[in-house]
């Protein structure tokens, strides 16, 4: 019995979060060469991840001391093999997973260790698009996009509907507004899910392998919508994906993770063409 059970891990001790100004200065210096996104001195990162650790069951360590800054309007693509902790990191950012240790700050406000009410408030500012779409099957496409606006933002039905139709048009599904998810293809469902997230006008949208559950011929439509969002809306996006071509085209920065650690990060052409890390090179080689 005892032999089979994994030893309990000790909780890592992490320093308290940095002050806003100090962090911004440090991040500016550190990230200047890592991203093709343009930001100016004095600007603050919109998301700061400091010393993030995540342990499941107290035995399996999924994230080890992850540090990452995301700037307003930046598009960050997170790559890495299965089980590397990409999705867990993403889910920590809107507290679908509770970090075991470390800090996550959104607009310089620490979100870890908060009550349910504050968590709900946080989540309306952090949109999420899931691998399995997670549309509400009892609602039409339009209602899926409306429900967060009416229930959470307190918008009137009319306002919400107007916004919903705008967002559905943006993802090319205006003609499917009154269809239930079951009557939509996977690609269409995912585009509705993107419209649902965007309609909340969040500060940042998290994409958790948005095309992994799709048939190859449906992937393109979803990627086009995301590309349009990245290039034309100025939306801050953190994307976990296996779509290398998309990452190279759209990302301002590529983050490579393995075994719960950020192994390498940088501009896409740098990471793809001249990876510094051996594992990054192997992974990119094996994928392509």
């Amino acid at each position: 019995m005892v032999g089979k059970r994994k030893a309990k891990l000790e909780l890592p001790v992490v320093p308290p979060p940095l002050g806003a100004e100090e962090a911004a200065r440090g991040a500016f210096a550190a990230d200047r060469d890592l991203t093709s996104h343009h930001f100016v001195e004095g600007e603050h990162p919109i998301v700061r991840i400091e010393h993030l650790n995540k342990t499941f069951d107290g035995t399996t360590q999924v994230l080890r001391d992850v540090n990452l800054n995301v700037w307003p309007g930046e598009v960050v693509v997170v790559l890495g093999p299965s089980g590397s902790g990409k999705s867990t990191m993403l889910r920590c950012i809107n507290l679908l997973e509770i970090p075991t240790a470390g800090h996550i700050l959104i607009e310089d406000e620490e979100i870890t260790g908060k009550g349910a009410t504050d968590v709900n408030k946080l989540r309306r500012d952090v949109g999420m698009v899931f691998q399995s779409f997670n549309l509400f099957p009892h609602l039409t496409a339009k209602e899926n996009v409306m429900i967060g606006q009416t229930k959470v933002l307190g918008k009137s039905k009319g306002e919400a509907e107007k916004e919903a139709l705008i967002q559905l048009e943006a993802v090319g599904l205006l003609d499917r507004a009154d269809y239930k998810p079951a009557a939509l293809s996977g690609g269409q469902q995912q585009r509705v899910a993107i419209a649902r997230a965007v309609a909340m006008h969040p500060n940042v949208i998290l994409f958790d392998e948005p095309t992994s559950a799709l048939d190859p011929e449906l992937v393109r439509g979803v990627l086009d919508v995301m590309r349009d969002l990245a290039e034309n809306s100025g939306m801050t996006m953190i994307i976990v994906t296996h779509e290398m071509g998309f990452a190279r085209d759209v990302a301002d920065r590529v983050v490579f993770m393995e075994d719960g650690v950020v192994v390498e990060q940088g501009r896409p052409e740098k990471v793809f063409d001249h990876p510094e890390n051996q594992r990054t090179a192997e992974f990119l080689g094996s994928i392509e």
């Binding site: 809107n94 500012d125 952090v126 999420m128 899931f130 229930k151």
Partner: peptide
């Protein structure tokens, strides 16, 4: 996923 989707909207 339904709970998570609702949560991610802030419900």
């Amino acid at each position: 996923g339904q709970y998570e989707a609702a949560a991610s909207l802030g419900m």
